[in-house]
Design a protein around this nucleic acid. Structure first.
Length: 436
RNA sequence: GGAGGCGUCGCCUAGUCUGGUCUAUGGCGCCCGCCUGCUAAGCGGGUUUGGGGAUAAAACCCCAUCGAGGGUUCAAAUCCCUCCGCCUCCGCCA
């Protein structure tokens, strides 16, 4: 959610942001109209309520006097009784009116709230305009490898190594499920251990988090807007999270956090669940696009002023991890139309996948500025004692499945074995993976 | 899963039975001021969070807020209903 004050004071900025995303510009004027309507309604209702309260209070006073008069036998009990009754009648009339105006004000406030939630986050200056294909490549690291033999794809390699078993995954759970076995399972664990060790080195606090969350948490992080990708457990009314970002963002919901000692940096490894609905026919081979994988995620709470620097920090850490895996990759500045509603800027790291002849997304980091915090009501207290919304950022350290794809394909050798990059060796306990 | 208890503005706490001077009590902590060679003590004042109005900005005025949401009533921390969380006991269990 963006700040209504910003919409009021600088509507052109909001319009420009919507335009860059290819989103609806007229929403800005709808929001402004709804805001005005709602404020007029609130003012009317509140002044009426103030009247009602003061009349109602006089009923109490009258009753008090009446009781006193009755007890002592002094004073005109009848007159006092009449006064009390009259006040009560007037209060009852006002109460009915107040009820009406309150309902109207509530309705208009709801309409306003629904509209402003539709506005996407303000895109940061410099983000390329346009859609999915309009990204800007910031840097390319390493070179796609020249093979002096015909490279195999990750599934063929994985099966030969006894590392990936799609058939049994499908048998047990259906399509896009899999088993990792032997070296495959060990690679998954090693990648997470590698990520966790770097996370701690970089000053992140590790958490073990819930992967089933309430509708409120899911909605607050904005993931319910992308409904088709989310698993919902009807019997318990809980959602399976597609990333631990959900729990990490929900962690400080409704809190006023202390950022005086610097940003709060958290990391969590969790199983991630994605329906991948609507991706039929896409990436159907192997474990590139699956319903379940494991991911170590970073999450940062900081002041809005620190957000851009923290975003660069997350990108640096992601690159550090990929460098360690010795993969060729590029960094892209994702275009406005491909950001998702919460992000103001997003950098993806895409690794080279030899048998696809393409760079594919391995990690991604988003700067959500105050958009997510506003929805989740996460604030900090400034030096002036006033509260303000914090900025949130998230980034992938590593997942297991896609890096395994990239590692197997890029580091395969003519004899069917796979070289293990040095950084991973301590966690895997070997420098080469051979057929089991 | 069953039974019972509890949830008050940072923390503790009064108020809930018996609805109305409750403008939610008091203490601790914190902040400002006075006093003071310094510190402490003492004294005085302030101290939830949203929202609306007012303002150059404040001061200020108003509305809501006693776990959340409904209801009853002229009036709800207080009565009724639903939900959530915590604690105790019982059952079950890796």
């Amino acid at each position: 959610m963006i700040d209504i004050l910003l919409v009021r004071e600088n509507p052109d900025l909001v319009r420009a942001s919507q335009r860059a995303r290819g989103a609806d510009e007229s929403l800005v004027d709808q929001v402004l109209a709804a805001d005005e309507k709602r404020r007029a309604s609130i003012t009317e209702f509140e002044s009426l309520r103030a009247q009602q309260k003061s009349v109602s209070k006089s009923v109490g006073a009258a009753m008090g006097k009446l009781a006193g008069a009755r007890k002592s036998g002094s004073g005109d009990v009848e007159t006092l009784q009449q006064e009390a009754d009259e006040a009560r009648t007037r209060a009852a009339e006002l109460a009915a009116k107040v009820k009406q105006r309150e309902a109207a004000a509530d309705q208009e406030d709801k309409e306003f709230a629904a509209l402003i939630r539709e506005l996407d986050n303000i895109v940061i200056d410099g983000v390329p305009a346009g859609g999915e294909d309009d990204f800007v490549t910031l840097e390319t690291v390493g070179e796609p490898r020249e093979f002096d033999f015909e490279p195999l794809d990750h599934l063929t390699l994985g099966e030969r190594l006894g590392a990936i078993d799609m058939e049994r995954g499908a048998k047990v759970s259906g399509s896009r499920f899999y088993f990792l076995k032997g070296a495959g399972a060990r690679l998954s664990n090693a990648l997470m251990a590698y990520a966790q060790s770097i996370a701690v080195e970089e000053g992140f606090t590790p958490l073990v988090v819930p992967t089933l969350v309430s509708p409120a948490t899911m909605g607050g992080t904005g993931y319910l807007d992308a409904h088709e990708d989310v698993y919902h457990l009807e019997s318990a009314d809980l959602y399976l999270t597609g990333t631990s970002e959900v729990a990490l963002a929900g962690y400080h919901t409704d809190e006023i956090i202390d950022l005086s000692a610097g940003p709060l940096r958290y990391t969590a490894t969790s199983t991630c669940y994605r329906r991948e609905a609507g991706s039929y026919g896409k990436d159907t081979r192997g474990i590139f696009r699956v319903h379940q994988f494991t991911k170590t995620e970073m999450f940062i709470y900081c002041t809005p002023e620190e957000a851009v620097a923290e975003h660069q920090n997350l990108l640096r850490i992601e690159r550090r991890l990929l460098d360690g895996l010795e993969l060729p990759y590029r960094v892209i500045d994702v275009a406005a139309g491909d950001l998702g509603g919460s992000a103001a800027r997003k950098f993806d790291c895409e690794a080279w996948v030899p048998t696809q002849g393409k760079y594919r997304e391995l990690t991604s980091t988003s700067n959500c500025t105050t958009y997510q915090a506003r929805r989740l009501n996460i604030r900090q207290r400034g030096d002036d004692g006033k509260t303000s919304f914090v900025a949130t950022l998230n980034g992938t350290m590593l997942t297991d499945t896609r890096p395994i794809v990239a590692l197997l394909e890029n580091h395969q050798q003519a004899d069917g074995s796979v070289r293990v990059p040095r950084a991973l060796q301590p966690f895997l306990g070997t420098d080469v993976i051979r057929p089991a």
